[in-house]
Amino acid sequence: MIALIRDSLLPLAWRWFVIACMIFFVVNVLLIILSVLVSSFGTGWFTGWLPEQFTPKWYGAAWKEFQLQYVLLVTVQITLAVVAISLIVGVPAAYALARLQFRGKSLVMLMFLVPLLVPPITYGIPLATVLYQVGVGGTMWGVILANLVPSVPFAVLVMTPFIEQIDPRLESAARVFGASPLMTFWRILVPLLMPGILAAGILVLIRTVSMFELTFLTAGPDSQTLIVALYYSMFASGVRAQQSVDAMAVMYMLTTMTGLLIAFRFVDPSQLVGRVKSQKV
């Protein structure tokens, strides 16, 4: 009887306890997000489970008050520049690390790993100091340069397993038929790597849109991305209606969630943590 309880009932109870905890956690997270969504559509919400009335007017208000068309334009420009540069710099670097053996390779790997592990706020202040000294601090280029620090290594990390999966004999075959290394890269590798490049690009895009610390430390008044504008409007809460801040938060949420949904078509969710699962071929 005791053996029965120990061997089958206790593990079962434990299993259900864990599942219940997970559900509790996820439900709370969803409710937190839902709070923002509900509040952004409400007229006033002081008592009761829901706001008194629902209205879409805060979205228009937020759009005007925070000059969101400008903020969104800046966000798109910065994000696309970061994605493009990270891929142009990161894909070849990932190729070299996946294929070539050279002296100091482990040092180079370490160089690409450390920026992902150190929290941005730690290196962001010295980086902002340098960027301001060079004269790009507070401009869009400053924000782009700062965002490259975590993005380039991240692109390298995501791309490496994709490159390792490609048979090196394909490249040798191309070389045999007289293709130059550059041509091999463009005609053989890039098409085969497209899924990986898309995955890396979308992941870098999401990370850049949601990168608060580095953008916050390097942005000037006219180079703020959506997340930084959201922070400033929350920081100055009371100046403007809470609901228009919520509306802005919802717009930010939609931007990242769209990216996330697209990303899920290409990658395993655990890659978003920054650690690439080693794939068994």
Binding site: S35, F212, A249
Partner: peptide
Amino acid sequence: IPMTLGTVLVAEGLMLY
């Protein structure tokens, strides 16, 4: 989801929640 949304948005949600 909460990781992707980032700390600022989670803070906004928690302020209400």
